[in-house]
């Protein structure tokens, strides 16, 4: 068991590292075509949107995903804080307090 864990860690680390660095090696050595540069300009907003929406959903086998109620509720004050403060730190602090409050009150 122990040896298997270490081998798994090393192999998973290796593939993850390759996924991270191969694009750097490719971009360094080849000029990106214009369409790819245009495509990549949408990655930041698209990927952050996908990660955020994923956290609001719960997979249900054979059905469309359900709503992750606690995450959805805590997101509301977090979004309001983002708009008002434009501060990442404030958003994180308000979000965590909101989530603790939601759990404490037993809303979700």
């Amino acid at each position: 068991m122990t040896t298997k864990v270490y081998i798994t860690i090393i192999l998973c680390g290796l593939v993850t590292w390759l996924i991270r660095v191969i694009p750097f090696a490719l971009v360094k050595n080849f000029k990106l075509p214009d369409w790819l540069t245009h495509f990549l300009s949408f990655v930041p907003v698209a990927i952050l949107s996908a990660i955020f929406v994923e956290s609001l959903l719960v997979t249900r086998t054979g059905h469309f995903p359900g709503l992750n109620v606690p995450n959805f509720l805590a997101s509301i004050p977090a979004i309001i804080t983002a708009v008002i403060s434009k501060s990442l730190l404030a958003v994180v602090v308000v979000g965590v307090i909101a989530m603790a409050a939601i759990r404490f009150l037993g809303w979700a």
Binding site: F52, N71, I79, A82, V96, I97
Partner: peptide, 15 residues
């Protein structure tokens, strides 16, 4: 509520 820190962070970064 610490598990929500990550979601909150992505909300902030996206906004």
């Amino acid at each position: 509520g610490l598990d929500f820190a990550v979601v909150a962070m992505f909300i902030g970064l996206l906004y």
